[in-house]
Amino acid sequence: MTFRIGVVTFPGSLDERDAQRAIRLAGAEAVELWHGEHDLKGVDAIVLPGGFSYGDYLRAGAIAAVSPIMSEVIDAAGTGMPVLGICNGFQMLVEAHLLPGGLIRNAHQQFIRRDQGLRVENADTAWTNEFATGDEIIIPLKNGDGGYIADAETLKRVEGEGRVAFRYTGLNPNGSLNDIAGLTNERGNVVGLMPHPEHAVEAGFGPDTEVAMRSGVDGLRFFTSALRALAAV
């Protein structure tokens, strides 16, 4: 069967079509979902895409996190449905308390866009099971508010429970504590990260790699991981 993965569009979302494309390239059906409705349209998994929902007013992701569809997203996450939050979507997941900690302005105050090295720290989630722990991948990063912070106790718990999904390699791009780029929840079905896997899914349109310009497709495995997780249920 073909799995259906929903992508929620919020006012100010930017990358919902890229996420839909990534889902199709992975072999699933992409379903458009709308922030103002209480309807998940029977999808099997959900992507909260990048962008600047509500202009980052109040705090990045904060207003989107209380939008109508988020009550359904939170319920679905609670039942084990795979949910991926990318960049602004990650910010929504922490604002909705589905993931611990917070994201603040990059420590150097600058917006940053670069092809970013990541190390997979947890390959046992719904969105990372096609990687091996320790794999090094390249995914585009582009954000202004990507600094991950948490209090000492939360940070200790996140590290101790293996909930760091990805860490930045090389120079820390935004001041994130412990180089944290992405997290998962206790169950492993919810994953959020600042870099953009949906921009690394097709040769010719991805990040530069050592092999060739724009050849990086490491992001595709996020989406094929979700399909594998769904097939295993």
């Binding site: 302005r105 990059n106 105050q109 912070i149």
Partner: peptide, 13 residues
């Protein structure tokens, strides 16, 4: 206010 113990990048700038 941002928490006292956390970095406030705007204030720092």
């Amino acid at each position: 206010m941002p928490k006292a113990e956390l970095l406030d990048p705007q204030g720092k700038a």
